[in-house]
Design a protein around this nucleic acid. Structure first.
Length: 334
DNA sequence: CAGGCGTGGGT
DNA sequence: TACCCAAGCCT
């Protein structure tokens, strides 16, 4: 009778939920700053920054400086997209920053309180919407991030699964009685115990119900390594009256960021060195050239900036690196 | 649905 | 070294 009641209530895993909760209370990362606030903006910002990004990077380099510059979503809404990109410089996946800016303006600095409304905002998908709604407003719904995903593959011993199946598994294991603690616990479990390599099944609070624990690393199926294509380009440093030419990307890649002019054909000038940059889906082998004038075929709009003003522009990683490496010398020379 | 989309850390 | 991986979303 009790059992059938549990199953109707969706709490077939009551015992495991208890163990997970005990584990979380003892071992969870309770000191993370976004777990010590109910401010929807601070929680939202953490969720966006943490997409495809390790906790340590966000925590040590970006979260607090961003909040210092943009303490509320209303401050984001009043700023320009470029100012937001500047605070995002070095974090990567810059569409997150552009979407953050659009979201701030779309909702006039006040986030909605349900996952259904949140999911309509740019940059907020199903999992992030539920995470914000859960952590800021106690909405009872599971999330499906990389940690939860890996746990589900192993717990239900699946090598492959569709998105729909994963969401169904997430719903099945979910502890609707403690949504906040459950969702946080699952992310900690994935990060600390059910890791991609060498998972610590002996310490796992879910081990009793885990169908994959005999061979956890078989689940999910390993992805095939895809080779990243290599592109080659010359990066041109071109000075005029103490100011240097840069263009602003209008494309999806590095959209809104500034960069030194890039050119694929021959150029005349002084060869300065090489740089290698690895991006998400290609690698760039770049030669750095100092040129007196830009090639005639370079057709993108450019602006000229002093080294001091280049400091204030949002730049991608390789351009920022080049700036730091070469510019002290060059600007002193000229 | 598959691929575009950054960067840094870990092994 | 050369991979893999990380609190995903958009098109």
């Amino acid at each position: 009778m009790k059992r059938s009641e549990d199953e109707r209530m969706g709490s077939r895993y009551k015992e495991l939920h208890e163990r997970l909760n005990l584990w979380y209370r003892e071992h969870g990362r309770h000191d993370l700053p976004w777990r010590q606030t109910r401010d929807p903006y601070r929680i939202y910002l953490s969720e966006i920054m943490l997409q495809q990004t390790q906790v340590s990077t966000v925590l040590e380099r970006f979260y607090f400086p961003f909040l210092e510059r943009f303490p509320t979503l209303a401050v984001v809404a009043e700023a320009s997209e470029e100012e937001v990109l500047k605070a995002w410089e070095g974090l990567g996946y810059y569409s997150r920053a552009r979407h953050l800016h659009r979201t701030a303006r779309l909702c006039n600095g006040v986030l909605p309180s349900t996952s259904q409304e949140l999911e309509r905002l740019p940059g907020i998908g199903r999992s992030t919407a539920r995470a914000i709604a859960c952590f800021a407003f106690d909405e009872a719904a599971p999330i499906l991030d990389a940690n939860v995903r890996r746990i589900l593959y192993r717990f239900f011993r699946r090598r492959k699964a569709t998105e729909r199946e994963l969401w169904r598994m997430a719903e099945r294991l979910f502890d609707a009685k403690r949504p906040y603690d459950y969702n946080q616990a699952m992310m900690d479990l994935g990060a600390m115990i059910c890791t991609p390599k060498d998972p610590r099944c002996d310490l796992c609070p879910l081990r009793e119900g885990c169908r994959g624990r005999q061979a956890p690393e078989r689940y999910p199926e390993a992805k095939k390594a895809s080779k990243t294509p290599v592109r080659r380009a010359k990066i041109l440093l071109c000075e005029r009256g103490g100011a240097w030419a840069l263009s602003q990307s209008r494309e999806r890649f590095h959209g809104g960021l500034w960069h030194f002019p890039r050119f694929e054909d021959e150029v005349s000038g002084e060869f300065l060195g090489r740089e290698l940059a690895r991006y998400s889906h290609f690698a760039l082998e770049a030669e750095i050239w100092r040129v007196a004038v830009l090639p005639k075929d370079y057709d993108k709009p450019i602006g000229f900036f002093t080294p001091k003003s280049i400091e204030e522009l949002p730049l991608g990683g390789i351009d920022r690196k080049i700036f730091k490496k070469y510019f002290g010398v060059l600007s002193v020379e000229s």
